[in-house]
Design a protein around this nucleic acid. Sequence first.
DNA 1: GTCTATAAAGGGATAGAC
DNA 2: GTCTATCCCTTTATAGAC
Lengths: 209, 209
Amino acid sequence: MTDNKQNSCGPAGSRASKDQCVLDAARQLFIEHGFGATSMDAIATTANVSKATLYAYYPGKQALFAATAQRECNRIMAQMELTEDLSELPLAEALERIARSFVQPVFSPDIVALLRMVISEVSRFPELGPIYYDSGPGLMHSHVADYMHRARERGLITTDDCKLAAAQFLGMLRSDRHLQRLLGKHVDTTSLEVTIAEAVKTFMARYAV
Amino acid sequence: MTDNKQNSCGPAGSRASKDQCVLDAARQLFIEHGFGATSMDAIATTANVSKATLYAYYPGKQALFAATAQRECNRIMAQMELTEDLSELPLAEALERIARSFVQPVFSPDIVALLRMVISEVSRFPELGPIYYDSGPGLMHSHVADYMHRARERGLITTDDCKLAAAQFLGMLRSDRHLQRLLGKHVDTTSLEVTIAEAVKTFMARYAV
DNA sequence: GTCTATAAAGGGATAGAC
DNA sequence: GTCTATCCCTTTATAGAC
């Protein structure tokens, strides 16, 4: 038997490498309790490894946190990819699709929790703010601004600042719901549909040709 | 001499009561370092009192934090008061004034720092989220929605959801600048003026009669 | 590489004198 | 009410066996 010893990691007994188990446990605990309230002991226990093993992989708590946050940022970046081509759709429908692919991750529990974590620790890790923004929200803004640019070239909208138009659109989608979400309030999906529809209307009232 | 003993409190030697000194020190440190990274020892030192005195005023760290956050929320509420009457102004000008009285506190360093703190500790103190929202951003939203209501009754705008119109307007003002601010990026005032002017334009394109 | 056991430090909270 | 000194627990980090 190769598993005479407990070599499975994490609460569910996954068979990933210990390194990944440690990162998964760290991710869960950092997101749930924050940097200060998460102990290396708790991470080791959750990952089913000893504390010394943690220090074999990472020189300290800060390095482990940085690695965790970095990996999570990359995950977000993967989620944010807008692969589908919206150029053929009519303006209103394209905006609705953009809105949904923006709202879905932005209001999802995991990403809200990560954002809380980054905001909490941005004073301790100042470099984390730009890393997170550029790999998540900033990327999304760029994608939307790119769409605005193409829509303008196709004569669908008129504006001399595509970035600002995108920022206004996404700002209306966040409205104050996103802030309330960060502050712990539950936001239901159906009310977000209203927010989306109305944001599209207002955007088109200003920019649609 | 009445000051044969060091009865001044805080770093600047103010003559407020010890209670206020403690709260001031706690405010500064909690905002700067967060709940977890702020020690009662540091608060006592900053307030120029002994640690035991802290516990004479507040039963523990959590109670001191709650009192600090509550007082800070009340401060914000006072700042948020929109005392001036905007009913006589033309729509665009009223919106600009509203926008400025919204943007100024929302992007100010103190309030951004407080918001960071509340978001950081909302998992530890779930009741803090609604308290902060209702006394700060929520109140602002209500005020703006009230203005929208009056503007509609005067025939300046047309909408069947004043709250949503207000949320869209304020959402465009936050845009992604507010998120970037939370993540540590500096936002200069002059670029916010552009944001304000454009938000007014878009709002009027949709809602102005 | 991985574990058990432990050192070293820091912080929340309290006892007792004044 | 306020201070000094201290208790006790948690946490980071490491030493040494396997």
